[in-house]
């Protein structure tokens, strides 16, 4: 569970927000400070005042699986194999186990025979799929995903969602501009100009957006 109290960071102000276990979508217009909130939750930024705790502990970088919205900002190493292996190597896991887990992970997205390919030859969508796998490879309890889905086609998105669902992560916080995807999450947090405009179950939050394009397309067409 993620608890935010009296948070201030630049223009982001959140008096109180609780993100319970399960999957939470963070939505809002461009420039509503979604990415900043996600970086704070992942421990990549520290609050200027107030607090964020994840399962009662202040988040520190490296303990949470994180995927950046900029595909290239996820890349640390030149080869796909090294990129996937990095979090395991940083945990001093044995070479043989690293190798087997990397092969197993790569196979899940059809990259079993592309481990020696260089990252710079991948498409934007392929880079974020590798970033997602890299974030999952150490089985983190918390996953923070910043709009990686905007780089994926329909089938790749289904694949990514099945990887996330099967990851065992207890808390998933994902920013998205895909309202249908947000509607499938357990909770939705709608940010507006650096504050929380609405938060709650999808039915509660989207009942406030019915006249707007921030309303799931599939809900407009359901019988």
């Amino acid at each position: 569970m993620i608890e935010i109290e009296d948070l201030r960071f630049r223009a982001l102000t959140i008096p109180r927000l609780v993100i319970s276990d399960g999957t939470t979508a963070v939505i809002g217009a461009n420039g509503s400070w979604k990415t900043t909130l996600l970086r704070l939750v992942a421990g990549l930024f520290r609050p200027e005042s107030g607090s964020i705790t994840v399962d009662g502990v202040h988040p520190v970088p490296g303990t949470t699986g994180f995927v950046d919205e900029y595909p290239d900002r996820n890349v640390l190493f030149s080869r796909v194999a090294d990129e996937l292996a990095a979090p395991l190597r940083f945990c001093h896991i044995s070479c043989s186990e690293v190798e087997s887990r990397v092969k197993e992970a790569a196979a899940t997205i059809g990259f079993g025979d592309r481990l020696h390919q260089t990252m710079d030859t991948l498409s934007g969508g392929e880079k974020v799929l590798i970033a997602l796998l890299t974030s999952l490879i150490t089985c983190p309890k918390t996953l923070v995903l910043d709009e990686f889905d905007s780089h994926l086609d329909y089938e790749s998105l289904q694949l990514a969602d099945s990887l996330i669902a099967g990851s065992g992560a207890r808390t998933v916080v994902r920013c998205t501009q895909n309202m249908d995807l947000a509607a499938r999450c357990g909770k939705v947090v709608f940010l507006h100009q650096g504050g929380v405009l609405h938060d709650g179950r999808p039915e509660e939050v989207f009942s406030e957006t019915e006249s707007d394009c921030f309303y799931p397309f599939s809900w407009r067409t359901r019988r």
Binding site: A29, N30, G124, S150, H151, Q177, M179, D212, C213, F214
Partner: peptide, 13 residues
């Protein structure tokens, strides 16, 4: 090339 990625729904419209 991918003009809609990263845009919110108002930007896309």
């Amino acid at each position: 090339d991918e003009p809609f990625s990263a845009l919110d729904c108002r930007g896309k419209l």
